[in-house]
């Protein structure tokens, strides 16, 4: 481990009874980067985050967070971390600013210092006008921004975000991405989990793809696409139930073909050329779409399943 390493895990394992949620994973998070865990629900992302956040003990392997072992230095680690859990754990009965105040007191911040910090964070979360409102009255996106702002109260070196934009509408998501990006600009190291491939592509410098408790691929979003799939994808849509029957007739049209519900995905380096071949074939899809390959395709090619299955 070097001085620029913020988190390092070797054969990290978490078991609940007979069930192995995290199955011996290795990863390293470097200072100043945005590191992502991409995978479907139940892949072991949240369990990993809770171990890194020093709120859940590991069942095996080695883990170092900010150079400390969470089993022995939980308190010290948590005092330097920002945690944004999957479910907002705000107090709905308290006001926006009281939520920040109380949380700041948990970190031992003096009242006077907190007053200024709360004003800054409200500004950051674009909630200054709502400071006195009960949290219950905020929209989903506002609650999420408040949860993130609260996680920053102790000016953490490392921020853990578990599914930061799940359940938000597109506008609220973009606003959040923008806030997270500005944190990165300030030099804060971010670790996030997501099952949205566009989120991973937008935010992450490096990521690992998780499935069933294991890491099945690692790299930057671009590297992963280059390594596991072709540059482009031609999506063919068919009437209900006909995609599978049409699949054999794509022989020779693409490097690889995947069937998803009513669609065929043709992986190819030249999408337009493939689309032309399709047009002159006997396939006759309802619609044809040429697009760049994404992390969704990486996951599909690695597991044969879609991310949000």
């Amino acid at each position: 481990m070097t001085t620029s390493t913020r988190v390092s895990a070797r054969r990290l394992t978490k078991r609940f009874g007979d069930f192995t949620a995290v199955d011996g994973i290795d990863f390293e998070v470097r200072a100043g980067e945005v590191f992502g865990f991409l995978g479907p629900n139940g892949a072991g992302k949240s369990s990993t985050m809770r171990m890194v956040g020093a709120t859940s003990d590991r069942s095996g392997g080695e883990l170092s967070v900010l150079g400390l072992d969470p089993s022995h230095h939980g308190t010290q680690i948590r005092s330097r971390l920002g945690v944004v859990p999957q479910e907002d754990n705000l107090d709905l009965e308290l006001s926006v600013s009281d939520n920040l105040y109380v949380y700041g007191r948990y970190f031992g911040l003096p009242r006077r210092q907190l007053r200024g910090r709360i004003a800054e964070l409200l500004e950051f979360a674009q909630l200054s006008e709502r400071a006195a409102d009960k949290v219950d009255n905020l929209s989903g996106g506002m609650k999420r921004r408040l949860t993130i702002a609260r996680g920053l109260i102790n000016e953490p070196e490392l921020v853990l975000l578990d599914e930061p934009t799940t359940g938000l509408d597109p506008q609220a998501r973009h606003l959040l991405w923008d806030r997270l990006y500005s944190l990165k600009q300030d030099g804060v190291t971010l670790v996030l989990t997501t099952h949205y491939m566009d989120e991973a592509e937008q935010l992450c410098d490096r990521l690992v793809v998780m499935d069933k408790g294991r890491i099945i691929a690692a790299g930057s979003p671009r590297e992963l696409v280059d390594r596991y799939v072709t540059k482009e994808v031609v999506e063919l849509r068919f009437p209900a139930g006909q995609a599978r029957r049409a699949a054999p007739r794509t022989d020779g049209l693409a490097r690889r073909v995947e069937v998803i519900a009513d669609r065929l995905l043709l992986y190819t380096d030249d999408g337009d050329a493939t689309a032309e071949h399709v047009a002159s074939s006997t396939l006759q899809p309802v619609s044809t779409l040429v697009r760049r390959a994404s992390l969704e395709d990486v996951f599909l090619s690695l597991t044969g399943r879609q991310l949000d299955d």
Binding site: G53, T55, T75, Q76, R78, S79, L81, V83, P85, E87, D88, N89, L90, D91, L92, E93, Y103, Y106, F107, G108, R150, G151
Partner: peptide, 13 residues
């Protein structure tokens, strides 16, 4: 969930 008091204390020192 509507309080989250313990969960947020847990994320702190």
């Amino acid at each position: 969930p509507w309080s989250g008091a313990y969960r947020s204390m847990q994320a702190s020192p």
